[in-house]
Nucleic acid binder design. Structure first.
Length: 1131
RNA sequence: GGGCCUGUAGCUCAGGUGGUUAGAGCGCUACACUGAUAAUGUAGAGGUCCGUGGUUCGAGUCCACGCAGGCCCA
């Protein structure tokens, strides 16, 4: 006879599963067999599915959030590959940018100022190049270990000369379209140091200091109205001569108030925000009369004479505050505009705008086409009226000098026209006894001229230059821009065709960003990055944009011929388009003048946004590949990239190719620690991805991340959750496989597709799980086509745990272990096998290692198996195998079984004790048919003999009625509650009437309302005299009478159970036969054995079942109510 | 300060188009089952659906205003 040891094991059996090892083994298998490469090569000639890799920077180590991001990228590429697409995925590295530079500077202990002095640009850039790829190996390692399939051997690298050449060609295209221009932007500027400051420099600790400045609430005289002024407050009075508009909040409330100027005592009408009145008008004066005011009174009376919303003020015109000759402006200057940043927290609720000295000001004025106060230089360029030393230009200075004389202002010295610094006064000045700074002088002038409503010292926080400690000015700085605003409408339109996950990021965060688009500031004053390929003559009259290496080389040759350059900086070495080499190139203008490169680098975001083109060195090479892989079908990055990579991809594609760059995008959220805090190395709550993978294996980590929450929500990463996924999902699936393998090996079952029993010839239960499986495939496919991985993983999990394991296998168990191979048994094996196999494919995108491992365990002996589940073709759902009616029936069966279990529990009758019958009230014929269909299954599951139905005809049904609210609500509206009350009070009589007549009249509030049968819901939840339970509209009553015969059968089942336990204790194998002897002293057992002996023998595989008087050496079995001695021997 | 996201049981999350008593898993408690057994079933405890107003016969769901946390931008 065959024992377990002798059996050839077709399907490997596992006592324990080591998930991390599966990860490692499968990874090695993939490498050895080039599975990734084959998964692409296999699809040669097929339709392409394009994925773009957003390049990470390898100058830091990867974190657990990169596992999230990379998993999300991976799954859809794998899924689409199965679906038959060819999915090329080129890896990439982002190598330029400020973080790299700062890291290098920190390591070298230098600052930006030292570059070119203590260290050459050449050496500095060399250091950056080394640093930026420092952790590439860690990144590659993680990428492999989490199973992110991407081409790491041939990635694009943004510092590569070919990559930069592509960028240059794109920039030249923009330039030729007139979309690249030199302008200015308002940036923090240190007049003391003579340099602009980056926002990073401004965020250094200690740069913001509390300082006391003179603040002025100025009066802007409204045109066309007597003595009426708009009040606006500023802490930088020196910007007032540059005022060219006032901003209000459209929805704020404003008032017009009659009062008197506190300095000149002249009557006036002022306009300010209603919420700011108390700050300017003393509430104590509210009762005073305007007529009673005498010049010099402390309390100044006032009277509100008008109230309106801010939007009513739009377009109002006022007189220029400082009508300096030469600084006049045409309409719409000096008008009221809208500013979304205006609040009533301080000031007057009206903000003074000076185009040159505030970023908000600048933006608002540009959007409203309002000019700013500037003077022209020799070449006709705009210059602000404060120069780069932080001093008013003499035109303004002369005006102020005149005013000082006119108003008889005395100060520590006699001011000349070039003495009016606005922030950085000299030490000598500041220490003088009667020192009056420019702000003070301006305020005196305004006070005297009836143009200041309030002047006071104001303490606030103001940024200072971290090097000179002097206050910073916001100042227009030269910059190169891409004119994205010219394409705003098109970009907005194109965005509407993109499928954003979540949708709100596309319409909200990204959509709003596009709606409020400003020109893209490309300039960066740094060293390590893509140089701007624009050369200019000294006077700026001629410009040239270089678009390729060939063009550059030709231009260099020309320059050498002209004698501007001695030799090419690339002579004898490889071409490198970085600084400093490119700075050494001097070009020749059309007039034969020298042209030097504009010194700026470009924003690194242009680097990454250009990757669709530059990764293929387009347009210089690979035109075919580029065209087949553009635009991307899918991209994914963190939501923080919305205004970064997502935007730059979109902008370049829209402006140069009139196309979207990507059709579908997932913007994923952050990975937080389990308490919802940001992970940081400093706080020690960061999860080490390598350690996590080592401990849990890649599949459970991936699955957890995808199934726990939608990727676009923040994930609170909790290792307990990974454990749970491992236990609940992978554990259950593995158990199911083990169960299959155990019995399949015993029965030497080998799956053969060609000989499989047709589904319609299989058992009802088989047909059911097959149907469920087809539904699952449909569901997963729909979810994945909609880029919803969470839905897909949850559906797979629910099928595996609830349907396949806890229902199908549990109910079908006996078919696997009972008797020899027959058609029914074969069908069970085939059904379970097919389900497992289908699962390996369904889950392979999410859990690529485990799925492949399981696939190979299942198909090891198969003939048509692929080398990997990742090389298979997607198995479409067979719609004809979906049997909705059967699925509904099974749901009923599951509900009924659960109800019977619950009743048994209530009545304290264990499942091993058979019971005679259950009663089910039936109101619909269909329900009855559906239950009858699966009657056998229900009966065996809950161990009862019969299912009986009672219908109306029985006359004993007690019915319940409920209003059908959605239907009634529409019909009745406010009368609902009376009708509902009436229905809830109905007796059987009314229910019978509406069922019989199809309608009934209800009297409510003196009115008669006719109700139709379909407006109420009738159910049956009670059978008089029975113990009943109901759920989901099904009611079950259980007959708990235990007859003599049922009792005997119960004993027989108990005996089987005890003997099975004995077998197990003895260590017998499943197929071992036994002999049983039992003590003849118990009459109940004797009759039970007499009537159910065959059953006991077949269940326990007993050859003999002998009654023995006074069995001496037996085991005493506890049968709950009595004990009996039994002896089991291996036959 | 602005835009956007999130807030439902101790924890993690579901809850088309409003509908009477808000669900699942984990965890906890009790019981049962025992040839998948480090598995499984049943039951129980556990909720101000972030708050306040509003719309409605009826709001976890719609609207407004707040609060808390987060991201991005000033």
């Amino acid at each position: 006879m065959l024992t377990r040891k002798d059996i050839v094991k077709t399907y490997k059996e596992f006592k324990q599963v080591d998930y991390p090892s599966i990860g490692e083994d499968v990874l090695q298998y993939w490498k050895d067999n080039q599975i990734f490469e084959k998964s692409i090569a296999n699809r040669e000639g097929a339709e392409t599915f394009t994925f773009f890799e957003g390049p990470p920077s390898a100058n830091g180590t990867p974190g657990i959030h990169h596992v999230m991001a990379r998993t999300l990228k991976d799954i859809f590429c794998r899924y689409k590959t199965l679906q038959g697409y060819q999915v090329k995925r080129k890896g990439g590295w982002d190598t330029h940018g400020l973080p790299v530079e700062l890291q290098v500077e920190k390591e070298l202990g230098i600052t930006k100022e030292d570059i070119g002095k203590k260290i050459s640009v050449e050496e500095y850039n060399k250091k950056c190049r080394e640093t930026v790829m420092r952790f590439k190996n860690e990144w590659d390692d993680l990428t492999e270990k989490i199973g992110y399939w991407v081409d790491l051997d041939d990635p694009y690298i943004t510092f590569d000369p070919k990559y930069i050449e592509s960028l240059w060609s794109l920039l030249k295209k923009l330039y030729e379209k007139g979309l690249l221009y030199k302008g200015y932007t308002i940036q923090p500027y240190s007049p003391a140091a003579g340099t602009g400051l980056s926002s990073h420099e401004l965020n250094q600790p200690g740069t913001y200091k509390d300082v006391k400045d003179t603040s002025i609430t100025a009066q802007f005289k409204l045109k066309g109205e007597e003595n009426t002024y708009i009040l606006a407050w500023t802490t930088t009075p020196w910007t007032l001569p540059s005022n060219s508009a006032l901003a209000i909040g459209e929805n704020l409330d404003y008032v017009k108030v009659k009062t008197f100027n506190p300095y000149t005592h002249e009557p006036c009408t002022v306009i300010l925000a209603k919420a700011r009145m108390n700050a300017y008008l003393n509430p104590k004066a509210a009762e005073l009369k305007l007529e009673d005011y005498k010049a010099g009174d402390k309390l100044i009376p006032f009277e509100v004479v008008g109230e309106f919303k801010g939007k009513e003020m739009l377009g109002w015109e006022y007189e220029q505050l400082f009508p300096i000759p030469g600084l006049t402006l045409p309409n719409p200057a000096f008008t009221v505009v809208s500013g979304d940043y205006v609040t009533t927290e301080d000031g007057t609720g009206i903000v003074h705008l000076a185009k040159a000295f505030g970023a908000d000001d600048f933006r608002t004025l540009v959007q409203n086409d309002v000019p700013g106060i500037f003077v022209k230089d020799d070449r006709g360029n705009d210059l602000p009226i404060v120069d780069k030393q932080g001093k008013f230009i003499s035109l303004v200075g002369e005006y102020l000098v005149e005013k000082i004389a006119e108003h008889g202002i005395t100060a520590h010295k006699t001011y000349g026209a070039d003495d009016f610094f606005v922030k950085n006064y000299t030490e000598d000045d500041e220490n003088a006894s009667d020192f009056k700074n420019t702000d003070v002088i301006i305020s005196i002038i305004l006070k005297n001229e009836n143009k200041a409503f309030k002047v006071e010292k104001y303490e606030h926080s103001y940024p200072h230059c971290w090097r000179t400690d002097k206050p910073v000015l916001y100042y227009p700085m030269d910059s190169w821009f891409i004119k994205t605003t010219a394409y705003k409408d098109r970009l907005v339109e194109l965005n509407k065709t993109i499928n954003w996950k979540p949708e709100a990021t596309g319409t909200g965060r990204f959509g709003n960003w596009l709606e409020n688009l400003v020109d893209w500031n490309l300039s960066r004053s740094r060293f390590w990055g893509t140089p701007l390929p624009i050369w200019r003559t000294e006077d700026g009259t001629e410009e040239r944009c270089i678009g390729s290496i060939a063009e550059l080389e030709a231009a260099i040759a020309e320059s050498i011929a002209k004698g501007f350059m001695e030799k090419s900086p690339y002579e004898g070495k490889e071409i490198d388009l970085h600084r400093p080499y490119v700075d050494d190139v001097i070009l020749v203008s059309s007039k034969g003048e020298k042209m030097v490169r504009e010194s700026d680098l470009i924003d690194v975001w242009f680097d990454s946004g250009a990757m669709p083109y530059a990764q293929w060195h387009y347009p210089f090479e690979n035109e075919e590949i580029f065209k087949a892989n553009y635009p991307a079908d899918y991209i994914a990055e963190g939501v923080d990239q919305t205004r970064g990579w997502f935007f730059t991809l979109h902008a370049i594609a829209g402006m140069l190719f009139d196309s979207v760059a990507f059709k579908n995008v997932i913007a994923n959220g952050l990975v937080l620690d389990k308490n919802g805090n940001k992970m940081s190395k400093r706080l020690g709550n960061a999860i080490d991805p390598f350690k996590t993978l080592k401990e849990y294996g890649p599949d459970a980590v991936r699955w957890y991340m995808l199934s726990n929450a939608n990727p676009w929500d923040n994930l609170k990463f909790n290792l307990d959750g990974v454990t749970e996924v491992q236990r609940r999902f992978f554990g259950t699936l593995q158990n199911t496989y083990n169960f299959f393998a155990l019995y399949a090996n015993l029965d030497e079952f080998v799956y053969d597709k060609t000989k499989a029993i047709p589904v319609n010839k299989r058992a009802e239960l088989d047909q059911w799980i097959v149907s469920k499986l087809q539904s699952l495939i449909t569901e997963v496919e729909e979810a994945m086509d909609n880029y919803d991985a969470t839905k897909a993983t949850r559906a797979i999990m629910s099928f595996t745990v609830d349907q396949l394991s806890n229902w199908y296998v549990r109910l079908a168990r006996k078919r696997f272990w009972r008797g020899d191979m027959n058609e029914d048994k074969q069908a069970a094996y085939e059904t379970l096998y097919e389900s497992l196999l289908a699962l390996t494919q369904l889950m392979s995108s999410f859990a690529p290692f485990y799925a492949d491992w399981l696939y190979q365990n299942l198909t090891a002996s198969g003939t048509d198996a692929k080398a990997s589940v990742h090389l298979t073709d997607w198995t479409k759902a067979q719609k004809d195998l979906i049997n909705t009616d059967l699925e509904e029936s099974m749901e009923l069966a599951q509900t009924i079984s659960s109800l019977v279990h619950s009743l048994r529990k209530k009545e304290k009758v264990k499942v091993r004790q058979p019971l005679q019958r259950i009663l089910i009230p039936i109101l619909k014929e269909k329900t009855k048919a559906q239950i009858e269909h699966l009657a056998e299954l229900i009966k065996s599951e809950v161990n009862i003999k019969d299912i009986e139905f009672i219908d109306d005809a029985s006359g004993i049904l007690v019915k319940n009625v409920k209003p059908n609210l959605p239907v009634l609500g529409k019909k009745l509206g406010p009368k609902m509650r009376f009708v509902v009350g009436a229905i809830n009070n109905w007796s059987q009589k009314e229910i019978a009437e509406i069922e019989r007549e199809g309608k009934i009249n209800v009297a409510v509030e003196g009115e008669t309302i006719e109700l139709l049968l379909e407006e109420v819901l009738i159910s049956s939840q009670d059978i008089p005299g029975w113990s009943v339970a109901s759920d989901l509209g099904v009611t079950v009553a259980l007959d708990v009478t235990i007859s003599e015969e049922l009792k005997q059968e119960g004993v027989a089942r108990d005996l089987v159970n005890r003997i099975q336990n004995l077998r197990k204790d003895m260590g017998l194998e499943v197929q071992d036969k036994i002999n049983i002897s039992f003590d003849a002293g118990n009459e109940l057992v004797n009759t039970s054995v007499k009537n159910f002996g065959d059953y006991i023998q077949s269940e326990t595989q007993a050859i003999n079942l002998n009654s023995v008087a006074n069995l001496a050496d037996g085991t005493i079995l506890d049968m709950d109510d009595f004990e009996i001695s039994v002896k089991v021997e291996k036959a």
